[in-house]
């Protein structure tokens, strides 16, 4: 009798326990999940919805546009300038910052005195807010600012003169140099972050391969280019992906440096700044939503393109 009922009872107890555990699980995730579903998933779908309507801020949809906003984008000169600027920024900034980050990572990965200090120092510019550091940058590179003073004091002005820049050049005010100033600013602040990513990748390389390289008589230079660099491929892939996605989202620095119109002469107009401009300066919400949809699709596709460049990525 007892032998027969025993399994049944524990079975029911277990089922009750499972149900309680499941209920507890749902209760634990209820609030965060609700927020994700409304503010992330819901708004994403809503963005696609808004982008195909003529949308009024207060009253909502007025008339159906279909892909009208997207067609308009393709013929919008300012949007095309924004795309060009964002691509230029991405193509220059990502490799530049990756190179600096890798260089710093290799340095602080060595057994040297003060390694912790150097790591902390190289990462330091990344802790400040984009607003504070952009204002600081504008101050440093303004005509006659610290940058101009220092290059003058170092006797570098003939070099700059050869490139066509006077002793007090308006780096942020000249359309030809404004975006490059932002590129240097962001390479400076973000190279520390990339250094940390590369450091993690460097430390995952087994010591055996270095021993093998040493036995084969490889020098340091050869070891780096023939062993370390190729073995870092998953690291390169990761940093490049994070970098490209971040670069396509360029906003804070150009909004602060160039105002809502990306001055001078649209030189700092990025895709995201254009989205912001469409929403709050032109007050054309559906058009802005369409820019967001394009950006989303590009960001979604970027890693797939990169995967083709770098070959198969790491397991994740």
């Amino acid at each position: 009798m007892t032998a027969a009922t025993q399994p049944q009872r524990t079975g029911r107890v277990r089922r009750v326990g499972e149900r309680q555990e499941a209920l507890a699980g749902y209760a634990f995730i209820a609030v965060p999940m609700a927020l994700f579903l409304v503010l992330n998933i819901g708004t994403t779908l809503y963005a696609f919805f808004i982008s195909v309507w003529d949308w009024n801020v207060r009253t909502g949809p007025r008339s159906f546009l279909g892909l009208g906003n997207f067609e308009r984008l393709l013929n919008d000169d300012i949007f095309l300038i924004a795309v060009k600027n964002s691509l230029y920024y991405t193509v220059i900034w990502v490799p530049l910052t990756m190179a600096i980050g890798l260089f710093l990572a290799v340095i602080v990965n060595q057994k040297i005195r003060g390694r912790t200090f150097f790591r902390a120092a190289f990462y330091f510019p990344a802790i400040a807010s984009s607003a504070a550091i952009t204002i600081l940058w504008i101050f440093l590179v303004q005509p006659g600012g610290l940058f101009d003073e220092i290059r003058g004091a170092l006797g570098l002005n003939p070099l700059f003169a050869a490139m066509g820049y006077g002793p007090t050049h308006n780096w942020m005010g000249d359309p030809a140099t404004a975006m490059n100033s932002i590129i240097i600013l962001n390479a400076w602040t973000t190279s520390g972050t990339f250094m940390l990513f590369y450091l993690a990748a460097l430390q995952s390389i087994s010591n055996d391969v270095y021993e093998a390289a040493a036995i084969d008589g490889a020098g340091a230079w050869q070891t780096f280019w023939r062993v370390t660099f190729p073995l870092l491929r998953p690291g390169h892939f990761f940093v490049a992906t994070v970098g490209v996605i971040g670069a396509l989202q360029l906003f804070d620095q150009v909004r602060i440096g160039g105002g809502p119109n990306g001055d001078p002469n649209n030189a700092l107009m990025s895709v995201v700044l254009y989205l912001y401009n469409a929403a709050f300066i032109q007050v054309n919400l559906d058009y802005a939503a369409a820019v967001g949809v394009v950006l989303f699709l590009v960001i979604f596709a970027a890693p797939l393109v990169q995967r083709r460049i770098f070959g198969s990525g790491p397991a994740w």
């Binding site: 963005a47 801020v57 919400l285 802005a288 967001g292 979604f300």
Partner: peptide
């Protein structure tokens, strides 16, 4: 689903969140 939200750029959500 939670991890997928990391792939959605904030900028796409600007207009709908504001509305």
């Amino acid at each position: 689903v939670v991890l997928a939200t990391l792939m959605i750029p904030d900028q796409l959500r600007l207009v709908p969140v504001y509305v």
